[in-house]
Design a protein around this nucleic acid. Structure first.
Length: 463
RNA sequence: CGGGGCGUGGCGCAGCCAGGUUAGCGUGCUUGACUCGGGUUCAAGAGGUCGGAGGUUCAAAUCCUCUCGCCCCGACCA
């Protein structure tokens, strides 16, 4: 058994432990182990003949909006029940792309990942009063011993409980912890596929500070991290001051992806780009009244909670002056699945999805137009193997289908670059490259593929 | 929860109002041939307790009752 002091020290942020001599795992492990760990890479290439992505030629009856329709058509999701979806391999791949970006940006600013239970005892919720306040949206049930539980729609209670048990001193603050996990909300009306579902993947981060200034600093840090997340996703976003709703607290901002089909209206300052709720008439940042109405999809929401949860749940720390004080909290959510839907709303055309470079499940699709000549198959394989060892992810459409079918699928699935291999290209030693974003087609020399890909990546307006 | 709509082969639909042989069409799927750069063409084939339960009737996909599910609009929300 470890002594408590050891445990306490172990979970402190590493930057607080600089005086403690701790051994780096790198120095500990032998080179054999290192090699094993570093060689386990994610799959970056795929033959489409083995991809489970049942595409639909026709529009599914249940889908009203583009993203829902296209996710179904592209074989990314399937519905199990109202507001409950399975992510098929391709859909999951994209979900993971978004999660990775989110995770990297959270880690970058000192967020520490953890994983909390979805199943939560009612007692915690009664402490904060939300067992009664939350309403039927909270999915409740009893276990075999008649004890009340709910499926977490959010995790303030659980993390506050964790922190009040383990965190004692101002020396332990600030801390930011987050998870990327499944949430449950029994929506009055689930709709638009993955956009408003009853079970969904969310990143939720919680910040803990010793005073208001610290909380505001954490808030600003997260605000900036959110900007980086959506920038990296290649999405046009807008932060808007917002109401706090049931989450509570004082100041909050919503992050919206700008899209025509967005449910939410907002006013954006033409001069400084500040965003306001739809009823605002002038920009308080630069004083002008040249606001423009835009529509967006809410994908993130950040809150300055203050002491709402720490007071009701008695999450206290001892400050420098020896006084017990409630921890000052903030919470910060990003809907991962919703971000995926919003990206499609923002980037699609009549043929299908147009993935931003960084969200594309694969950036490149190699499309041999037929398999009749050995040369085409050969070049396709060669390209596939070449790209396999690079930073690019690619699929090879090795299916036994006609060219038209492959083209339609490639457009539908939205790979940013298609490399089309036909007889002409083979004869002339060139490659035909089609850019999904703008439909542009260029012929390049075969040896220039990687350079071309890099150029396309760089010039992609939403990379 | 209020309002509207829909459940018929995997998917998209017709048939129902005015009950009546083996329940159709398109697409997809299987096989064969012809094609072969934008979901080809032709032929043959497999696949359906018509959401479920009960009722009316000689007879129900069709009429009646109940029920389950799904979609859309509204209030609510990440």
């Amino acid at each position: 058994m470890n002594g408590l002091s050891h445990i306490e020290r172990a979970w402190r942020p590493f930057w607080k432990l600089s005086q403690v001599s701790h051994r780096s795992p790198k120095n500990d492990s032998n080179t054999e182990d290192q090699r094993e760990i570093t060689t386990s890479r994610e799959e970056t290439t795929l033959k489409m003949s083995s991809l489970f992505a049942p595409t639909l030629k026709e529009d599914p009856a249940e889908a009203e909006i583009a993203s829902h329709n296209l996710m179904l058509r592209a074989g990314m999701i399937r519905q199990l029940s109202a507001g409950i979806y399975t992510y098929l391999p391709l859909g999951l791949k994209i979900l993971n792309k978004i999660s990775s970006i989110v995770r990297e940006e959270m880690n970058r600013v000192g967020g520490q990942e953890l994983l909390m239970p979805a199943m939560q005892p009612s007692e915690l919720w009664k402490e904060t009063g939300r067992w009664d306040v939350y309403g039927p949206e909270l999915i409740r049930f009893r276990d075999r011993r008649e004890r009340n539980f709910c499926l977490g729609p959010t995790h303030e209670e659980v993390i506050t409980d964790l922190v009040r048990r383990e965190l004692r001193s101002y020396r332990d603050l600030p801390v930011m912890m987050y998870q990327i996990q499944v949430k449950f909300r029994d929506e009055i009306r689930p709709r638009f596929g993955v956009m408003r579902s009853r079970e969904f993947i969310m990143k939720d981060l919680y910040s803990f500070d010793r005073d208001k200034e610290g909380m505001q600093k954490s808030y600003e840090t997260m605000y900036e991290a959110y900007c980086r997340v959506f920038e990296r996703c290649g999405l046009q976003y807008q932060a808007v001051r917002a109401d706090s709703g049931v989450i509570g607290g004082d100041i909050s901002h919503e992050f919206l992806i700008v899209a025509q089909s967005g449910e939410e209206k907002m006013m954006v300052c033409r001069t400084c780009r500040s965003g306001y709720p739809e009823d605002e008439e002038r920009c308080s940042v630069c004083g002008t009244s040249t606001l423009e109405e835009k529509r967006g999809i809410e994908v993130g929401h950040i809150f300055q909670l203050g002491t709402k949860y720490s007071r009701s749940m008695n999450a206290l720390f001892v400050d420098k002056d020896g006084q017990e004080k409630p921890i000052i909290m903030g919470c910060y959510g990003i809907g991962i699945g919703r971000t995926m839907g919003a990206a499609i709303e923002a980037y699609h055309d009549e043929h299908g999805i147009q993935w931003p470079w960084n969200l594309a499940p694969y950036q490149v699709a190699i499309i041999p137009v037929h398999k009749r000549t050995a040369k085409i198959v050969e070049i396709a394989d060669m390209l596939y193997n070449t790209i396999k060892d690079t930073r690019y992810e690619c699929v090879l459409d090795d299916r036994d289908l006609r060219a038209g079918h492959k083209f339609k699928d490639a457009d539908l699935l939205g790979f940013p670059v298609q490399i089309i291999l036909g007889d002409r290209a083979v004869d002339e030693n060139t490659l035909e490259v089609k850019i999904r974003q703008n439909g542009e087609r260029i012929d390049i020399n075969r040896e220039d593929v990687l350079e071309t890909l890099e150029n396309i990546r760089k010039s992609s307006f939403h990379n």
